[in-house]
Design a protein around this nucleic acid. Structure first.
Length: 449
RNA sequence: GUGGACGUAGCUCAAUGGUGGAGCGUCGGGUUGUGGCCCCGGAGGCUGUGGGUUCGAGCCCCAUCGUUCACCCCA
């Protein structure tokens, strides 16, 4: 542990004294600051996602980050890794057991059931966005506080809903990455009727080949047998060659449903790969399950995932109504975005020199800022220093008001991209500047096509 | 939770065990009030922390904290 007694020594050049300064406080492990360079990228993915959600007819809800622990033990499953090992759970002062949400769906269902939303509308289409918390070891694409976009369709068993949820995730991600860097993996997990039969056969099979499996798989055989099918170990893969697959055990209803989901994906023109080994880590999933995996993101490459959860609403104390949903990992989406898409420019840098110029310049700010982003410096500097600053801020134009301008009652507007410079009379100055810059913006947008 | 790699200037990184440097950034200058490019200069470091070995440690050893990648798990 970093000793609290330790002190940084700051040498003061002028006094040759040593001044004791407090130790820096850092952010918590796995909790990351989003600084000003990255923030525009976040705004962009949020804008794109919100626009898509609304176009698909989803409505936004905003939920608490903290829920009663029971929301997740019942929703996600008591014996999942997330609940057993990864949740931030604590006792509140009134001895109530609370948890920071590790995912969104359980909380959405809790809210839907609490407010009886599904009784007002036969089919609910909801989306939400925000931070989630899991106490895992951080690595690339994995933080302890991370962010998800989440969409849920509650109240429909139609395969169109499954396909639409997948299409939504697909379209949002495709805004940031080309199709050849993205795979949609698809599977059906069966339902309450057919899954137990497969599970039984799988367990029998695993018992037979137990000796050849790796340590992880032997543990998984106990906790989540389906996961064994997904092992990357070569010995395990070979031993599992003839393992019973879910697809051979699906009941008639599940077969039909899955086949129709695939039809609809074709109609939406979305390519997919069938992966009979694809499994979810949360207990509530049935039937359709999917992952959108980026081809070049490292080990944590799943950008979005989801599936159907027909029993969940009932488990959370509501009626027995079906549901399907998905979540997109926002940090992973950010990693897919080209960095130059993050740029953030201002329209005008306002240079004033002298007291009278200052008074005029400041009075211009409110009208200019009705339509333009304007940066006005606080410190008096030489023109050169101002111009450098304007360039650094990627300003489209600079407005110059100094003694000369005051004398002639005309301001100078310099366009920093094409270097044109014009004079504008003080009469109706703000209006004229806005007109000039808006005209330029249009020309630029047009030439960019 | 397990394993590997790495901690040097604000950032990215150099420095056979022998006086810690560069690029970028920052600040100033290159003659009156015009940015990017170029040139010159300044500031900025108890080399993560604590021990040990040594005449001498940024470098070797131990511990600790942190970062990172992978496993596990998952968005």
């Amino acid at each position: 542990m970093m000793s609290a007694k330790r002190r940084l020594i700051f040498k003061n050049k002028h006094h040759k004294q040593e001044i004791k300064v407090s130790q820096k406080i850092t952010a918590v492990r796995g909790f990351k600051d989003i600084l000003e360079q990255e923030a525009p990228g976040w705004r962009k993915i949020e804008d794109v996602a919100r626009t898509k959600f609304l176009r698909f007819g989803f409505k936004e809800i905003r939920l608490p980050l903290v829920e009663k622990n029971e929301v997740f033990t019942r929703g996600i499953g008591e014996h999942t890794d997330i609940v057993e090992k990864e949740m931030y759970t604590f006792l509140d002062r009134n001895d109530e057991l609370l948890s920071l949400r590790p995912e969104a769906t359980a909380g959405v269902i809790r809210a839907v059931v609490e407010h009886d939303l599904y009784k007002q509308h036969p089919v609910l289409k909801l989306f939400t966005f925000g931070p989630m918390f899991r106490r895992e070891r951080p690595q690339k694409g994995r933080l302890r506080q991370f962010h998800q976009f989440d969409a849920e369709v509650i109240g429909s068993a139609s395969p169109v809903a499954d396909a639409e949820i997948i299409c939504l995730a697909w379209q949002i991600i495709r805004e940031f990455v080309s199709q050849d860097r993205l795979n949609l993996e698809l599977n059906s997990l069966g339902c309450r009727l057919c899954r137990p039969i497969h599970r039984e056969n799988l367990l029998k099979y695993l018992e037979k080949i137990k000796e050849t499996l790796c340590d992880d798989c032997r543990r998984r055989a106990e906790t989540n047998p389906l996961r064994v099918l997904d092992c990357k170990n070569e010995h395990c893969k070979a031993a599992l060659k003839d393992a019973p697959l879910l697809k051979d055990y699906l009941c008639e209803d599940c077969v039909q449903h899955f086949s129709q989901v695939r039809d609809h994906l074709n109609q939406f023109n979305i390519p997919y790969i069938l992966n009979p080994h694809l499994v979810r880590g949360l207990d509530y999933y049935v039937k359709t399950t999917f992952e959108l995996v980026a081809t070049d993101l490292g080990a944590q490459a799943t950008v979005a995932a989801g599936g159907r959860y027909d029993g969940l609403v009932r488990d959370m104390g509501g009626d027995d109504i079906p549901g399907v949903g998905m979540a997109i990992g926002a940090e992973r989406l950010m990693m897919l975005m080209e960095e130059d898409a993050w740029e953030q420019a201002i329209d005008l840098y306002l240079i004033y020199m002298g007291e009278e110029a200052k008074r005029l310049a400041l009075s211009l700010l409110p009208p200019l800022r009705e339509t333009l982003s304007v940066y006005a410096p606080y410190e008096q500097k030489g023109l050169k220093a101002h111009m450098r600053m304007a360039d650094k801020l990627k300003a489209t134009a600079a407005l110059i008001i100094g003694d000369n301008e005051i004398a002639r009652k005309k301001a100078v507007l310099k366009h920093l991209v094409n270097h044109e410079q014009i004079e504008i009379s003080f009469n109706d100055l703000a209006q004229e500047i806005k007109q000039q810059l808006c005209a330029k913006k249009e020309t630029f947008n047009n030439t960019r096509g």
